[in-house]
Nucleic acid binder design. Structure first.
Lengths: 165, 165
DNA sequence: CGCAGTTATCTCGACGTCAAGAAGGACGAC
DNA sequence: GTCGTCCTTCTTGACGTCGAGATAACTGCG
């Protein structure tokens, strides 16, 4: 089955036969797929009246395990947003009663963000919904292909995640 | 090499051993990689004083071939943004002299967006830069692995691109 | 012809993100 | 100790995107 990137690559080969556009076969697909996933997630979460960005923060805290708290800095590396954005997100989640800010006892510059009970419930319930949706999307691939794909992607993400750039 | 998604998955398995979080191995990597790519592109384009969104629109027109014109609607499907966003983008590109709006001769509701000569130069020059950057990122993989990865990704993107959702 | 439904583009207000920088605290060298 | 540097979080203003709705024009059925 052909996709939009096939058309895009064919167009470049016609217009710029002098260039090797093979890298687009991989990376344009990654970008476009991510955009499709964003839209799909927005739909899925709207059933729980949750925005994708809320999900990202709440589940990062949920994953941390009891007592479900992380510093804003730790949340930055997990969600790939800037510090200004994170301050804003925490403000809004705190206003909704899903998280609370506590002073860091070991560093007076620092803050700890803790999940409230309601925040934890929301995180748990919406995760199940997300997994169901993702499973449907991945049903195009066999289990072996999914493993293969995950492995190839890891090789591309690892440099970004390990050598902070 | 381990990446952030490996840590994320391990954390879920510890916190929610009742759930099968295998889908995240693929799709969380896609989302995170796309975010890293966005940042890298922003840097690469800043040398040409071009924003990623400008690149997206200009190259879509460039790919169309002479006379380098498309309707706003055609640009929507290629760039995955909403119509309000596209109107705004065309306004700003027109103001910079990189594109111009022409009436569609066959449909009076319609508009054609055409690349100016300067817009075309900008598109051509920045594409070369992007490809160089992407090639560096993909050097982690062998040619055969790149082909394999592109094929697996195609199977996931095709349903989105063909059954408009 | 006239009307309903559809399609193409634009308008508008709300919202979230970013980049840059400020303020305050930690920490090592000396 | 204390100075300079680095780190952590928050503040701010500009900007781009979205969603919903408005407008205008094309289409085909009766």
């Amino acid at each position: 089955m052909e996709d939009e990137v096939d058309r895009l690559v064919a167009a470049w080969r016609r217009e710029r036969p002098d260039l090797d556009v093979e890298p687009l076969e991989v990376l344009s697909r990654v970008s476009r797929l991510a955009r499709h996933l964003d839209r799909a997630r927005r739909l899925a979460f709207s059933e729980h009246s949750l925005e994708p960005w809320e999900f990202d923060v709440l589940t990062a805290l949920r994953r941390a395990g009891a007592p479900y708290q992380l510093s804003p800095g730790q949340l930055l590396t997990q969600t790939l947003v800037t510090s200004g954005t994170m301050t804003n997100r925490i403000d809004r989640l705190a206003q909704k009663g899903l998280v609370e800010r506590l002073p860091d006892p070991s560093d007076r510059r620092g803050v700890l963000v803790r999940l409230t009970d309601e925040g934890r419930d929301r995180a748990d319930r919406s995760l199940a919904g997300l997994l169901a949706q993702e499973r449907a999307i991945l049903s195009e691939l066999s289990p072996a292909q999914r493993t293969e794909l995950a492995g190839l992607l890891r090789r591309l993400t690892a440099p970004f995640d390990n050598i902070p750039g």
